[in-house]
């Protein structure tokens, strides 16, 4: 059974609560969307999602939303991710690897500077999240 133990919860509760409270009243500053259509998944999107999750977990940020969407229509350039900082145009990154993902997280999501060498261009398809 997947009962999370009291110890498990105690360990994370305070930390998770603090992170959540920090955000309350404010929207997410950044939204990271990993494209997870069949094409993206086959090309390794889950590894990219894992890499973003690790970075997010290690960062102390409370205002970054990590989500996923479907096929963006450019299957040959998967894995792809879109980074959107509030008030700025979304940037699409293509042909991602775990290494590139870490760099994008640090430089763009945290630092606010677009990593031009990995970017496709500006703009985004519609996502549900």
């Amino acid at each position: 059974m997947a009962k999370l133990t009291i110890d498990d919860l105690k360990k994370i509760k305070e930390k998770a609560k603090r992170r959540t409270e920090l955000r309350e009243g404010g929207d997410y500053r950044a939204k990271v969307t990993v494209h997870m259509g069949t094409c993206g998944i086959a090309a390794g999107a889950r590894k990219i999602m894992n890499a973003f999750m690790d970075e997010l977990e290690q960062s102390k940020s409370s205002d970054i939303l990590l989500t996923n969407s479907g096929c963006a229509g450019l299957c040959s350039r998967e894995p792809m991710a879109t980074v959107e900082l509030s008030g700025q145009a979304p940037i699409k990154y293509i042909d991602l690897t775990e290494q590139k993902t870490k760099e994008i997280f640090q430089k763009h999501v945290i630092g606010g500077n677009v990593v031009k060498k990995y970017a496709l261009g500006k703009g985004s398809e519609k996502t549900d999240a």
């Binding site: 997947a2 994370i12 992170r19 959540t20 977990e57």
Partner: peptide, 17 residues
């Protein structure tokens, strides 16, 4: 139901899951 309102997709929660 065990999280008392902490979002299930918080990085810490995902890690223990």
């Amino acid at each position: 139901s065990q999280l008392n309102g902490i979002p299930i997709h918080s990085p810490e929660v995902l890690k223990i899951i």
